[in-house]
Amino acid sequence: MMFNTSVFQVALLLERFKGSLMLCAIYLTLSISFHCSVVSLRWLESNSLTWTNVLQVLSVFQRVAAVLYYYFYKRTTECLGDPRPYDDSVWLRDSFARARQRGGRDWRI
């Protein structure tokens, strides 16, 4: 849905959802590291189940991040379904004015 908006609105949405995007990157990193560790241990000893302390810690962090990831994912999709960011409105103009005052960025092309 982000691609259905203009460039200015995408910048506003990215600023609004940067926490969700960062959590997505953390979850992806933890998932890749956990699964690579499992595969490498299985590759070395395919006849036995090896479970190390590092693998236990990675598993716990990955699963905690998964719960947070899915919660923020659902919250973000519900916020993206809000029609306000897609139409020109007073709310959108006020949001741009606040963003300019806070960050000092110029949103003009």
Results as ranks from 00 to 15, higher is better:
Met2Gly: 02
Phe3Ile: 08
Phe3Tyr: 03
Phe3Ser: 05
Val7Ser: 00
Val10Phe: 00
Leu12Val: 01
Leu12Arg: 02
Leu13Lys: 03
Leu13His: 02
Glu15Phe: 01
Glu15Arg: 00
Glu15His: 04
Gly19Ile: 06
Ser20Phe: 09
Ser20Ala: 09
Leu21Pro: 00
Met22Arg: 05
Leu23Arg: 00
Leu23Asp: 06
Cys24Ile: 01
Leu28Asn: 03
Thr29Ile: 06
Thr29Leu: 10
Leu30Met: 05
Ser33Pro: 01
His35Asp: 01
Ser37Ala: 08
Val38Tyr: 10
Val38Gln: 13
Val39Cys: 04
Leu41Asp: 00
Arg42Trp: 07
Trp43Ala: 08
Trp43Gln: 06
Glu45Trp: 08
Glu45Phe: 12
Ser46Asp: 06
Ser46Lys: 05
Asn47Asp: 07
Asn47Trp: 05
Asn47Val: 02
Leu49Phe: 10
Leu49Ser: 10
Trp51Cys: 04
Thr52Phe: 11
Asn53Thr: 08
Leu55Gln: 14
Gln56Thr: 14
Gln56Lys: 12
Gln62Tyr: 07
Arg63Asp: 08
Arg63Ile: 03
Arg63Gln: 13
Val64Met: 14
Val64Ala: 14
Ala66Trp: 09
Ala66Ile: 03
Ala66Asn: 08
Leu68His: 13
Tyr70Cys: 14
Tyr71Lys: 11
Tyr73Leu: 14
Arg75Ala: 15
Arg75Tyr: 02
Thr76Cys: 11
Thr76Met: 15
Glu78Thr: 13
Gly81Gln: 15
Gly81Thr: 12
Asp82Leu: 06
Pro83Phe: 02
Arg84His: 12
Arg84Met: 11
Arg84Leu: 07
Pro85Met: 05
Pro85Cys: 05
Pro85Glu: 04
Asp88His: 07
Ser89Asp: 11
Val90Leu: 05
Leu92Ser: 10
Arg93His: 13
Ser95Pro: 00
Ala97Arg: 15
Ala97Leu: 14
Ala97Trp: 03
Arg98Phe: 05
Ala99Arg: 05
Arg102His: 11
Arg102Ala: 13
Arg102Pro: 02
Gly103Met: 06
Gly103Arg: 10
Gly104His: 08
Gly104Pro: 05
Arg105Cys: 10
Trp107Glu: 01
Trp107Ala: 01
Ile109Leu: 12
Ile109Arg: 00
Ile109His: 01
